[in-house]
Structures are given as structure tokens and as C-alpha cells.
Nucleic acid binder design. Structure first.
Lengths: 229, 229
DNA sequence: CGCGGCTTTGATGTTCATCAAGTAAAGTGG
DNA sequence: CCACTTTACTTGATGAACATCAAAGCCGCG
């Protein structure tokens, strides 16, 4: 991980994240933030770490995951640029309940949490917009998990292929940022079955795939499996 | 459902929910709220309803659930007095994504959402406390689902028996507010298997149970099953 | 008092995890 | 850069966990 600093007032992301802050607030915030860059695979946050920063992704991709008592890891969310990656815990807990690591080279803006809270207290407009964004994020996670759990394995695989194609890459053809094992951890199944089902989809000409590259061939069928599988 | 009004400034729940509001704010809010009472089984909110109120439970018990495309229902949360039952959607969506119904005779305080947002904007202290409470709630739901899904059926049943004993009734002996079918919908399994496993627990003297009453007999064993089952 | 929904138990079948074993790929140290 | 180790990927065979189906008793309610 490396750190560097930047000018918040001129920051491209200001509009997207802190649009309701005025120049004064932005500048006062500027000294309480750090931009950090991580390499693919780097751990950004470990479960149990003290929470004292509020994170959002500027570039890259990260996974949020939780380790169960027996060592199994469950991936809770994949976050893309502009997402607040801290989940909700930041405002309700003192220690992180989830670990976060980089799936790709990633730049994160880390803002002092105490300072953020100060601004929430003094700027209600900002408080509300934060509440809205964080709510949406948590809601998405809850609903997504609910949907996934209601499906058979084939349906889950179809679901996440569509999710990556639509929500993350906006392309019918992309390179999966996750290993088979990580896909398994994301959608609650075994690595073996992830592989088996991807192979089936290939055989059935629903997708094409070499290693981690995926190309959607039969969109309609994939959607049907995602829904009814 | 019946409605009636009450004096917010003298409300017992004020401290717990709106503690950071001053007399002026409370009184201005008072005209924008309604207390409603529901009978066991009544539907409080239906999926698709427009969101224009913010709810919290004063007395009783409710379930929040989502209906899947094929008609199956998944229970997302059981809310007890003082809980905000609107989940997060209230701040991020215009239409409810979940239905809410009363598991018991229930009194709900419904506050005009527009008014709440106004107060959030003008009172940062309130905004922050709301953010904290809502975050905690969503976090609990996410983590609870994650834990449940990582367990076998016996573990799930043990888990929710403990949950009801500890978090809802604070007693080793209680009457389940849910039917077998609803338990199944809460912890993702079939009604038949809920029944089977409860029967097993009875046979093994881990719990005693007649109809919907449950009494924990072997706490240690139950906890062990909840963890490792 | 009969109908529909909830509960219960048993028998059967399917889905999925586990185990095993082998190949390919990707780090690691000399 | 090559042997070496480790980690990821892949396929098949087996068995366990769980859903589904069927059938019957129970209870509340119009």
C-alpha cells in the first residue's frame, strides 16, 4: 500500500460523494483524508481492526468478506468505484466485522471518520445524502443475498454472470476478477460445482469461456436460468 | 387497523427514538405522525406501496418479508418494540420492497417521512443518531443471514430458538409467534424439516415443546448445535 | 359440521457437498 | 532460468443432506 495526497476541492469525485459540502467544508476535510493505493490481492481492512476511517473507492475493485468460526470465508459484497466500501458498520460499531481486500489494483480515499461525523452534525443536507446512499447499498446487499439464496446452483451462476456483465463491466464479454473459489464464496456453493456449472454453460453454448474470461452468448437463456433455475 | 393520536412531548418513546430533538422539533413533528394499532395477522405495509412514512414499533411484533417471483415468501427480519421496521428502503426508494405484517397485536408510530427528512437536514445530531441506529439494524440483518446460511438445518433451528429466547423474549420459555411455515421462511428450509428437527430436539431432551410453546432444557447442547451444526 | 389451513410422519428422489486424483498454472528459491 | 512447491482448476464417483410427495390427524372458523 502507498499513500499520497491530493486537492479535495479539485477532486473529480467531489461531486459524486461530497456534493453537498461547500468549499469551506471540503477544504477542512482535506487535511483529514488520505488517498491510498493497493495492489491486487492486498488487504485493505482486516476483521477486528479499529474503525476510524470512512472509505470509498476511486478506482479498482474490492471484495468485502466475513470469516466464519471454522475458517470458511463468505464474500458479502463486490464494490466498484464510487461505492462506499465500509458497509454500515462504520456508523454503528467500533471494530470492523468484515475484511476488505483488493481484487484489482485499487485506489481508495480514506476520510477520518470523526471528521465525517462532525460534518454530518453540521450539514444536514450531507447527512441525508449519506443516509440515502448507505441505505441503498445495504438494501442492495440484503436483497441480492435473498435472491441468490432462493435459487439453485445453476441459477446462482447465471445470476452473477449477468451481474458482472451488467453492473460491473457493462459488457457481454469480460474477465472475471474472482477465482472459482471466490465465486463459490460469493454465492454459497463449492468450488467444484462452480467449475462444473460453468463447463455445462459452455457445452450448452450459453457462454464462452477460457480461464477467467467470460462471454455471454445466449443472453435470453442465461436470464431464464437466472430467474427460474 | 385503528388510529389514534398522542402527545409526542410526553411520549415514553421520545427518549429512545427522538432523544436529540428539542421541544420545538418534537412538537412540530407531533402533527405529522399517527399512532396505528394492528391486530395479529394484519398487513401493515405491502410490497409496492408508496413510501411516505417512517415506522417504528411501540408494542408488539412484526415480520418483514419479501415475495419472490414464484410466490414463495422469505422473511427478512423480525422486529420488536423500538425497532425501526422500515428497513433501509425508506431513505433510498420510493416504493416498499418488503411487506410488513403483525405477528402479534401491534402499535406502530408512523411519522411523515418528508417531515423526518426535514428534521434530518436541520438537526445533525439527530441525523447521526438515526444513521447509527439504521446502520446497526441493517448490519444485524446482513450478518444474521450470513450466519444462518452457513449452517445445516439443525444449526439453524437451534440458532433461532436461541435468538427468540435471548433477543426477543429474554426467557428460556416462550410461545413462538411464528407458525412452522413461517420459521421455514425465516431460515430457508421446508416446513416439514422444521417440524422434524423440532421433534428431534424434543426426543433428545434439548427442548420441551407443545404446539408453539418452547422451553429450552439443555442450553449448552443447543448452543453447540447452533454453532457447529 | 365440513372445509381449509396447519401440523406431523414416513417413503422417495434430487441436489449438492465431499472425496479422490490428476492436470495446469503460478509463485519461490537456488 | 530451471527445479520445486504450492495454489488453482478440472472431472468423475460416492454419499449425505435436504426437498418433494403422499397421507392422515388436528384445529379453528364460518
Amino acid at each position: 500500500m502507498t499513500e499520497n495526497n491530493c486537492n479535495c476541492e479539485a477532486c473529480d469525485y467531489r461531486m459524486l460523494v461530497f456534493e453537498s459540502l461547500n468549499s469551506l467544508e471540503i477544504n477542512s476535510l482535506c487535511n483529514f483524508k488520505q488517498e491510498k493505493t493497493y495492489k491486487k490481492g492486498d488487504i485493505i481492512v482486516s476483521e477486528g481492526d479499529k474503525i476510524d476511517e470512512f472509505f470509498y473507492i476511486k478506482t479498482g475493485l474490492v471484495k468485502t468478506y466475513h470469516t466464519l468460526y471454522d475458517g470458511r470465508e463468505k464474500i458479502v459484497n463486490i464494490a466498484t468505484p464510487m461505492d462506499y466500501i465500509s458497509l454500515l458498520s462504520v456508523f454503528s460499531e467500533t471494530y470492523h466485522k468484515y475484511s476488505i481486500s483488493a481484487l484489482d489494483d485499487t485506489t481508495v480515499c480514506c476520510v477520518n471518520l470523526h471528521k465525517i461525523k462532525e460534518i454530518i452534525k453540521s450539514n444536514g443536507e450531507f447527512a441525508l445524502s449519506l443516509l440515502e446512499r448507505i441505505s441503498k447499498n445495504a438494501d442492495k446487499i440484503i436483497l441480492q443475498n435473498l435472491q441468490l439464496n432462493s435459487k439453485h446452483l445453476r441459477g446462482r451462476i447465471a445470476y452473477i454472470i449477468i451481474l458482472f456483465a451488467d453492473k460491473i463491466y457493462n459488457k457481454e464479454s469480460f474477465v472475471l476478477p474472482l477465482s472459482r473459489k471466490e465465486i463459490a464464496q460469493l454465492i454459497d456453493m463449492t468450488t467444484e460445482n462452480v467449475i462444473r456449472i460453468i463447463s455445462e454453460f459452455k457445452k450448452d453454448k450459453i457462454i464462452a469461456s477460457v480461464n477467467k474470461s467470460i462471454k455471454v452468448l445466449d443472453r435470453k437463456k442465461l436470464e431464464q436460468i437466472a430467474k427460474h433455475g
